[in-house]
């Protein structure tokens, strides 16, 4: 009782027949082998699984693969273009916005969405904007710095 789906991930089109209950995050990780997207919880609290679906951040553990049929998905693997890091990736690196890196793909994509909505956020807005993403390593200090730095790079960009 598989369902055929057609999904564009990081610019490449995939066609698969999947179980209706398969979560998008498991489709990306286990079927496509795109393991940059992480799983950190089972209650949609942590945001480690955040990807862009049709340009907007979604928690891919709350989306069924069949719901992504026809959608365009960007995962962390697809963010750098032509070997050039995205300004958010660059800013996370330079501001030491990651330690273990497990929250990082989701954090970067959540920040991407945030900066799309609000290209010039205050520190307070960044903190609230990332409320769906948990990091246990950094205390968020350098993540916030990195997002503010990326915002500036992108505005000047």
């Amino acid at each position: 009782m598989g369902v055929p789906i057609r999904v564009e991930v990081n610019g490449r089109v995939y066609e698969h027949t999947v179980e209706p209950r398969l979560l998008l995050v498991h489709y990306l990780r286990d079927v496509l082998g795109l393991t940059g997207t992480k799983v950190g919880c089972d209650t949609s609290q942590c945001g480690a699984c955040t990807v862009l679906m049709n340009g907007l951040a979604v928690k891919s553990c709350t989306v069924l693969a069949v719901q992504a049929d026809g959608a365009q998905i960007t995962t962390i693997e697809g963010l750098a273009k032509d070997g050039e890091l995205h300004p958010l990736q660059q800013a996370f690196w330079e501001n030491h916005g990651l330690q273990c890196g497990y929250c990082t793909p989701g954090m970067i994509l959540a920040a991407y969405d945030l900066l799309q909505e609000n290209p010039n956020p205050t520190e307070e807005e960044v903190r609230h904007g990332l409320e769906g993403n948990l990091c246990r390593c950094t205390g968020y200090h350098n993540i916030v710095k990195a997002v503010l730095d990326a915002a500036q790079r992108m505005r000047e960009g």
Binding site: G36, T37, T75, E77, L85, W93, Y102, T104
Partner: peptide, 18 residues
């Protein structure tokens, strides 16, 4: 800046479940 990071910020680092 950390030498570890390029793999981590591009989703290329492999954790156990990967």
């Amino acid at each position: 800046k950390r030498l570890e990071d390029p793999a981590l910020i591009t989703g290329r680092a492999k954790y156990t479940d990967d």
